[in-house]
């Protein structure tokens, strides 16, 4: 299963890299991309990625209330929810998952990836 991870270069990107260096779930193929702030990821980019063979997108960024650009993570959360609602309506079982991390606290990423695997197992 393929997951595309998008992280902001303030916290999400280094955190994803650190998680992957530490070894991740073997069933997963993770493609990592960095952006300046999670707020720049718009719905169309998410959907464009999902048009490919990725089943999940992981958005990793600063915690909601301490986003470097004040509102970036909130934007990302709202957009992820919107895309998920659209996918849900269209009965497509691809999803966008969120993980709010700091550069040191990477466990939310591992949890989110594990959740993706669980969910996939349940569906199939």
């Amino acid at each position: 299963m393929k997951v595309v991870a998008i992280g902001c270069d303030k916290s999400g990107y280094p955190a994803v890299l650190r998680t992957l260096e530490g070894g991740c779930t073997p069933q997963l193929e993770v493609d990592v991309r960095g952006v300046s702030c999670l707020g720049v990821v718009r719905e169309s980019l998410l959907l464009e990625i999902l048009e490919g063979d990725a089943s999940y997108i992981l958005l990793a960024g600063c915690p909601l209330d301490s986003c470097h650009n004040l509102e970036g993570s909130r934007f990302a959360k709202a957009r992820a929810e919107r895309v998920n609602a659209l996918l849900d309506e269209a009965e497509v079982d691809k999803r966008v998952v969120l993980a709010f991390v700091t550069a040191d606290k990477t466990s939310p990423i591992r949890d989110a990836l594990a959740r993706c695997v669980d969910e996939k197992d349940r569906v199939t």
Binding site: G39, N69, G72
Partner: peptide, 10 residues
């Protein structure tokens, strides 16, 4: 501008 990109993305 701090180049956060929020304007461009919205």
């Amino acid at each position: 501008c701090r180049l956060c990109g929020l304007c461009a993305s919205s």
